[in-house]
Amino acid sequence: LYTYEILNSYPHDPKAFTQGLEFFRDTLYESTGRRGASTLRKVDYQTGKVLTSVALDKQFFGEGLTVLNDTVYMLTWQSGTGFMFDAGTLRKLGSFEYGESEEGWGLANDGVRIFKSDGTQRIWTLDPGTLQETGFVETVTDNSVFNKANELEYVEGKLYANVWQKESMMIIDAKSGAIEGVVNFGGLKEKVGQHPDLDVFNGVAYHPGRNSFFVTGKNWDTLFEVRIFKKEG
C-alpha cells in the first residue's frame, strides 16, 4: 500500500474532462473527453494556461494519450480509432484502427513500445511504427484479476494506472502485468473546488526532471504535484 504527499498545487481548467496527461519537454499534454467537446491541448502546468488546443470531430469521445518521437498518439473511446498529431504544432498526422482490443482508454510508452488499456484486464503493447497490437499482459494480483486500468503512465519498468471510478492508482509490472502496489489518493477530491460538474479522479503524469507525479481529475480546478511513498506498517 502506498500513499501520497502534496508538493505543490497548480491551476487546472475546471471544464477539462481529463482523460490523458503526460509531460514532454517540460510541457504538459492533456486530452479531454465527451463527444462534441473532446480536445488535445498543450498546457503550461504552472499557470494552467492552455498554450495550444485542437478539437476532435464531434462524433469522437477523446481518451488517453502518449508522446513518443515528437508524435502525440491519442485514443478515442468506442470508435475503434486513434489519431497521431505533431507534438509541436498539434497538426493531425493521421489515424489508426484498433485491432483486437475492445475500446480506447489509456496510453503510455517506454521509449520503444506503446501500452494501451481498453477497459478489460488486458494492457496491450503496440508497435509505434505500425500501431499494430503486438501482444498483451493481464493485470492480476495474487488472487484476483483487475479490469479497471484507465489512464496510464510508464516509469522505470512500472505502469501507473488510474482505477476507473476510484481514488486510487495501481502500480503494475509492465512485463508481467503483476500488480505490485496500490496508491490510495483518498481525500484529494475534497481539496478541489466543489461544483455540479465535478467528476472522478483521473490523469497521471510523471515529470522526470522534478522526480514527481502530477495528478488531477475530470473537471477539477487543481493539478496536484505529489510524491508517492509506501505506507508505514
Rank of each mutant, 00 (worst) to 15 (best):
E100V: 15
G106K: 07
D127N: 15
I172A: 03
W164L: 09
K175G: 14
Q132C: 11
F185V: 01
G88K: 14
Y98A: 02
D110I: 01
M84W: 00
K148I: 13
W164N: 09
K158I: 14
I172H: 07
A108C: 09
G135Q: 10
E153C: 13
S95H: 10
E156Q: 14
L159I: 15
G82I: 09
K175Y: 11
M84A: 09
T134D: 07
R113C: 08
E100W: 03
G157Y: 08
I172T: 05
R113F: 08
N109R: 02
Q165A: 11
N150Y: 08
G104N: 05
G104E: 07
E156G: 10
M169P: 01
K191R: 14
V145S: 13
E133V: 11
L131P: 04
E156C: 10
G129V: 09
V183D: 02
Q132A: 13
A161T: 01
L188P: 01
K166R: 10
K92W: 00
D173M: 12
E167G: 03
L188M: 14
E138H: 01
G104W: 05
S144K: 11
E103A: 10
Q165T: 12
F146S: 10
G88L: 12
D142M: 05
Y98S: 01
E102N: 13
N150P: 08
Y160V: 03
A161V: 08
T89V: 11
K166V: 07
T125F: 08
G187D: 06
R122G: 00
G104D: 10
K116R: 14
V192E: 00
K116P: 06
G135I: 05
V140E: 09
L188G: 01
G135F: 10
L131C: 09
P128H: 13
N143Y: 10
I114E: 05
F146N: 05
F185P: 03
T139N: 04
F146P: 00
S95Y: 03
L90H: 04
T125P: 04
K166I: 07
D142K: 11
D127V: 08
T139K: 00
L159T: 07
R113Y: 10
L93P: 00
M170Y: 15
F85D: 00
I172V: 15
G94K: 00
L131E: 06
M169K: 02
L131F: 13
D127H: 07
F115G: 02
G187H: 09
V192F: 00
G99N: 13
A178M: 12
T141W: 01
N162W: 05
L126Q: 03
V182E: 11
M84E: 02
L131N: 13
T120C: 05
E97V: 14
W105D: 00
R113I: 06
E97Y: 10
K148C: 10
G129N: 13
N147M: 06
G129L: 11
S176M: 03
